[in-house]
Amino acid sequence: MTSCHIAEEHIQKVAIFGGTHGNELTGVFLVKHWLENGAEIQRTGLEVKPFITNPRAVKKCTRYIDCDLNRIFDLENLGKKMSEDLPYEVRRAQEINHLFGPKDSEDSYDIIFDLHNTTSNMGCTLILEDSRNNFLIQMFHYIKTSLAPLPCYVYLIEHPSLKYATTRSIAKYPVGIEVGPQPQGVLRADILDQMRKMIKHALDFIHHFNEGKEFPPCAIEVYKIIEKVDYPRDENGEIAAIIHPNLQDQDWKPLHPGDPMFLTLDGKTIPLGGDCTVYPVFVNEAAYYEKKEAFAKTTKLTLNAKSIRCCLH
């Protein structure tokens, strides 16, 4: 018999989150649709729960009410004593943790798909938090293969000092899905179709896995975050240069030392320094102006996964 890495157990509980950011409308629209008619997301033997994560922000069509829901799922915020004085999103995070967690427990949901849009030209993107997770690498390989020839990129946010504390991190297997470009507060049919297909293929993978299909060893190309880059700023902290036209919409493309990065209003080009080629992502993302992030630098690498098969009882 072929030796293989056996994944822990079959997958039982899956959640699909929309509206973690209330103005990213593809996930909101799909989740609302699936709450009314969820036939397309159901798979035999699998509990799939669509869920609106930040209903107040969705109602106002804004990213958040008090603070970013997708950055506060750490033990400090989840452990705060519940009171009306807490920011709305912290209270909501505790409610979500109660419903789908608790985080880092045996009772937490197996998989959470968190649906997002970006204003950046990132196409279909899967966000991975753990480079050693054979199950998710296999799932992402399946999704990428199923979507081809449509490109699907994998963004690895594993980093020693950049801690995200994402909404989906309460699950055993957290999956971020990011599709763009799409303006905030807008629905685009092409973007919706791409996100819908990503979810379909992900659920198909889980179904095949649960039925005992063995997935042979595989490898995927990923883009691992190195650092986030702020806009150049003046002495008052105001933005002093904008994304250069040569960099705009060039997510995932190589940016070499000396290539144009920013452009000042008086026409001066600010190039990339250093001696390493990087791959920019979230270029000129609207939501990241407040976070002082013009783009993120990534490096390209390959992740390998062992063969996996479900432990059938």
Rank of each mutant, 00 (worst) to 15 (best):
V175M: 00
D114C: 01
N246W: 07
E47R: 10
L303A: 00
V175R: 00
L156Y: 10
K163D: 13
Q182W: 05
V278E: 00
N133C: 11
E24G: 01
D130K: 01
T119K: 05
K80W: 12
F17P: 02
N77R: 11
Q138P: 01
Q94A: 12
F17T: 06
T118F: 02
K291P: 09
P102A: 10
I199C: 07
E84P: 14
D107R: 12
Y109T: 07
H10L: 13
L263M: 11
E24R: 01
R309T: 08
P50M: 00
L312H: 15
I137P: 04
K172C: 01
E40K: 06
F135S: 02
G38I: 11
Y279T: 00
D110T: 01
G212P: 02
E8Y: 15
N246L: 09
F295M: 07
K163V: 09
G123N: 00
D259G: 01
L255C: 07
I6L: 14
V229Y: 02
L30Y: 01
A287L: 09
N304S: 13
F29S: 15
M139Q: 03
D251S: 00
I308T: 05
E76M: 12
N210Y: 01
G273S: 12
T302V: 13
L156Q: 05
Y155C: 15
H256F: 08
K80M: 14
P257T: 02
L136G: 02
P149F: 00
V31F: 04
D251W: 03
T302E: 08
R233Y: 06
E9M: 08
K300D: 04
Y173A: 07
D230Y: 13
Q250F: 02
M122V: 15
D251Q: 01
N236S: 11
T167W: 09
V229C: 07
E106S: 13
G237N: 09
I206P: 00
V31L: 06
Y289M: 15
E178P: 02
N133T: 00
G22P: 15
Y155R: 15
K60V: 10
Q194C: 11
E36D: 12
S105W: 09
P254H: 01
K59A: 13
C311I: 12
G274Q: 00
G176Y: 10
T44C: 10
K60N: 12
E238W: 00
L25A: 15
A294P: 03
P254F: 00
P151Q: 09
K103N: 11
Q12I: 00
H5V: 12
Y88C: 08
K306P: 14
N133D: 11
E293V: 15
Q184C: 11
H33M: 06
L162W: 12
I191E: 05
K163L: 08
F209I: 01
N210K: 10
M195T: 13
V281S: 07
A287I: 09
A15F: 06
G212F: 00
M82W: 13
Y88F: 10
V278P: 05
G18H: 03
I206D: 02
I111P: 03
A240Y: 08
T302Q: 09
A165V: 10
D107C: 12
R91V: 14
L25G: 14
H141D: 01
I308D: 04
T166G: 13
E89P: 04
N246M: 10
I177N: 05
K292L: 07
C310V: 14
G19R: 05
T2G: 14
E95A: 11
L150I: 14
P216A: 09
M195W: 04
F29W: 15
K103R: 15
N23Q: 06
P217D: 09
Q182G: 00
M122P: 00
V222R: 01
P216F: 06
N77M: 12
R196L: 02
H256V: 08
S3C: 11
T269A: 09
I72Y: 10
I72W: 10
K80V: 13
V283H: 05
N97I: 09
I11F: 06
K80N: 13
I112G: 03
G237S: 06
P260V: 01
T125R: 03
S161Y: 10
M139K: 04
L156I: 05
A240T: 15
G27H: 03
T166D: 08
K81Y: 12
T44G: 11
R233D: 00
K306V: 09
D275I: 06
T166M: 09
L187P: 12
F100C: 06
Y231W: 11
T145C: 13
E95F: 09
E158L: 05
E235A: 13
K228W: 11
G123A: 05
L162G: 15
G18T: 03
A294I: 05
N97V: 10
R63Q: 11
E95L: 10
Y153A: 08
T298S: 12
H116Y: 10
A296T: 15
E235M: 09
I206C: 10
H207R: 11
G18L: 00
R71V: 10
H207F: 10
H98P: 07
K172W: 03
A93N: 07
I191A: 07
E238I: 05
D259V: 04
E95M: 11
S83T: 14
T299C: 12
M195R: 04
N121H: 08
L75P: 14
T264Q: 08
H208L: 15
G101H: 07
P271V: 11
Y173M: 14
L187W: 00
S120Q: 02
K59T: 12
D74N: 13
A165W: 09
E227L: 04
R132N: 14
A15D: 06
K224Y: 02
V154R: 04
N97Y: 10
E36W: 06
G38M: 15
Y155S: 07
R168I: 06
N210C: 05
L99C: 11
P181L: 01
K297Q: 06
G38Q: 14
I96L: 13
E211H: 10
H244S: 04
H98I: 12
V31T: 14
N246R: 12
T264N: 06
L35P: 01
K163T: 11
S3I: 07
P232C: 04
K103W: 09
V48Q: 02
A286T: 08
G22D: 07
N97S: 13
I111E: 04
F209C: 02
D68I: 03
D85P: 13
R43Y: 02
E84W: 12
Y288E: 14
Y289D: 15
E290I: 08
A240F: 08
Y223T: 06
Q42D: 09
